[in-house]
Design a protein around this nucleic acid. Structure first.
Lengths: 203, 203
DNA sequence: ATATTGAACATTCAAGAATATATTCATCGT
DNA sequence: ACGATGAATATATTCTTGAATGTTCAATAT
């Protein structure tokens, strides 16, 4: 009633996404039908197409959500370590790895879905990547201003760090080592980054 | 005749491998039959099993060969840069990337085969990885002795570098950037490694 | 007009038959 | 004995087809 209370812009869209999430989690993308999602939303399958172009677009939206939550976790790490870039980078890598690890264990179907979407939608991967780089570049810029690090081009350095820490973002490599080893590697790699970007390096 | 001249220990095995290579290159693993390989060797299909346990083992042997040649290229890089660890590491990453890139372009089917074998035979991946780590650790050890670098645990550092440069070894990430960008990234990452492992870092 | 639907259409999936191929083995020639 | 083979068997691949599902659209209700 009040013009101040902003109602959900698309409550139906969200409803569909929730229903799809529940189905995909339990049965997987391939085994859930548009009819089932529609039934959960108490509408016809045809009507889903008023809110999404097709089934793949629902999955894409969910994948975006997953990647968004991952970004939020990393943003929280950044917020909690504003004064200590070394710790921030270490915790960034640990958080990235733990998120990947936990997704694989706890939500294997959703994880698989994100993987598939990423393979078919380079734009989604790229946006997620850009957001991460921007966030990480901010950390490096701040640390350079405070004197903790000495980074000429924060964007370039952030890019490098993301490339070099791909192991921790991609499920494909997870099974090659136990969790503890991965975590140790994350810590060591963070140390290597910090040493390589420290003031006085490479001169 | 002369006991000095060591004849091929298994010329027939090699012959089979050559025939299989030619077929796999042109038609792919799935589309070439044991009968075809046998015909190329002028023998029966049954006789192939005197030299290999099964078709997959032929592919495994070829994959080992591919990885072996990759290791040889890296070993050559090491030999040609014994005095300059920084250059050696840079050229290592460039060589690793270029090998991956060229394999994907020039021998896509063989590349796919190596990929498949690696997914089914962790032992082969692991051995290749161990060989690379040993080679790279040697570089770090030598550089530490000469004072160019300061690496406490060369094995651990080599391990880290290999993990961090996975992008350049795995075809999966190749298409995400043009060749020049990858090469620049390889150079920059090498620089980051060297800076991070330089004397005085991390103290 | 807008939201929704049932029914039509297009595409994909899945199960089984048919085929092709991988693998084994008894036998042959040396 | 050894190396090799053709035929026999087991396994995998392909093909076919009915069914299931994704998608569209004209028609209906609000």
């Amino acid at each position: 009633m009040s013009p101040l209370a902003a109602p959900d812009p698309q409550p139906i869209r969200l409803n569909i996404l929730e229903a799809a999430t529940a189905r995909f989690q339990q049965y997987g993308y391939g085994k859930t039908t548009m009819a089932e999602i529609a039934r959960d939303c108490e509408m016809s399958a045809a009507n889903l197409y008023r809110y999404f172009d097709n089934k793949a677009d629902i999955a894409a939206e969910l994948a975006r959500g997953c990647l968004g939550r991952k970004l939020e976790r990393l943003a929280t790490v950044v917020e909690n370590n504003e004064r200590d870039a070394a710790k921030c980078i270490e915790n960034w890598l640990l958080e990235a790895f733990n998120h990947t690890w936990e997704m694989c264990l706890d939500q294997p179907r959703m994880n698989e879905l994100v993987d598939d979407v990423c393979n078919q939608r380079p734009d989604i991967v790229h946006e997620h990547y850009s957001q991460k780089r921007e966030l990480l570049a901010g950390v490096l810029r701040t640390a350079t201003e405070s004197g903790e690090l000495c980074v000429d081009d924060p964007d370039e350095a952030a890019n490098l760090m993301l490339i070099a820490s791909i192991t921790f973002d991609v499920p494909h490599f997870l099974h090659m080592q136990p969790r503890e080893t991965h975590e140790q590697n994350a810590r060591k790699l963070a140390r290597l980054f910090v040493d390589g970007l420290a003031d006085g390096a490479g001169k």
